[in-house]
């Protein structure tokens, strides 16, 4: 006999909603992510691509790009195009430095020959969510108002399917998307020169702040350099999420965000 599909949204019986919980005090950095390597966690960088064989990035488990399909619409195809400008490689290198054993995948949506309309961004993100990646790192946003609703729907879809979206906040107080949606983990840059420091912001919409100043990043051509950029903070948090999910498989995006909050340095220090 097949299970009857649910007819209404309902909470369920008491036994159905029992959730294993750790006490608030038990959620420390030590418990949450210390000692983890990211093993078993699939991370996708939706950006300008990733340069293959870069020493700061290492193995890339999948490389894709958004291109114009036969009907002119955007489609995702396997790609050997590498990185169109270096931005995605820089972000991937940061994730690798934090979670050295995670799987790294790339979807090129910037400079992909199908950019400018925002369609590439939406198509690439939808594809990444459909693949069921554990973490998607988005160091980009759009100010196009008509994309707000599709991106909000994708944010919710990812949230309910168990994909953690980590998105860069705009560094000015302007409306851009998808970082403003509560379904994603939004990240800005703090001014401290500490790659391990993640701070919770009690005055959202930007929820977390991480290292974006004087960051050593992977540069095209196998190089590296030290630079400052708002979007470098996001892969620091994406990497931390990969560690948490590696040590605690099965956590939902809500739980991962809660663990991030509970292990943020300013939250711990205030106890």
């Amino acid at each position: 006999m097949t299970a009857r599909p649910p007819l209404t949204w309902r909470l369920g019986l008491e036994d159905d909603i029992a959730v294993a919980a750790s006490g608030h005090a038990g959620v420390t950095a030590e418990w949450a992510w210390r000692g983890a390597t990211g093993r078993g966690v699939r991370v996708c960088v939706v950006d300008s691509g990733i340069e293959p064989d870069h020493p700061m990035v290492g193995r890339i488990d999948g490389s894709y790009a958004v291109r114009a399909g036969a009907d002119g619409g955007a489609v995702v195809v396997e790609s050997e195009a590498g990185d169109s400008c270096g931005h995605g490689t820089a972000c991937a290198g940061i994730i690798r430095s934090i979670a050295p054993e995670c799987e790294l995948h790339s979807v090129q949506v910037l400079g992909a020959g199908f950019s400018g309309t925002g369609d590439a961004f939406v198509t690439g993100l939808r594809w990444a969510i459909d693949q069921g990646f554990d973490v998607v790192s988005l160091s980009l946003s759009t100010r196009r108002r008509h994309l707000a609703e599709p991106l909000r729907e994708l944010g919710d879809l990812a949230y309910f399917r168990g994909t953690v979206l980590v998105a860069s906040a705009h560094n000015l107080p302007v409306e851009s998307f998808p970082w403003r949606f509560s379904s994603v983990i939004s990240v800005g840059s703090h001014a401290e020169n500490d790659p391990d420091l993640i701070l919770y912001n009690p005055r959202p919409p930007v929820e977390f702040f991480a290292h974006g100043s004087e960051v050593e990043v992977a540069w095209p051509g196998g190089g590296r350099t030290r630079c400052t950029g708002n979007s470098f903070a996001t892969p620091h948090v994406a990497g931390r999420c990969a560690l948490i999910m590696s040590k605690h498989p099965g956590l939902t995006p809500f739980q991962v965000k809660t663990v991030l909050y509970q292990t943020s340095q300013n939250v711990r220090e205030e106890r």
Partner: peptide, 25 residues
């Protein structure tokens, strides 16, 4: 597509590089 101007244009991201002697971009 060249130089840091190309990097910034294509990524739409602001950037500061304090030591260009180490930058391959």
């Amino acid at each position: 597509t060249k130089g840091i101007a190309g990097w910034v244009l294509n990524s739409r991201d602001a950037l500061i590089v304090n030591d260009l002697s180490t930058s391959t971009v």
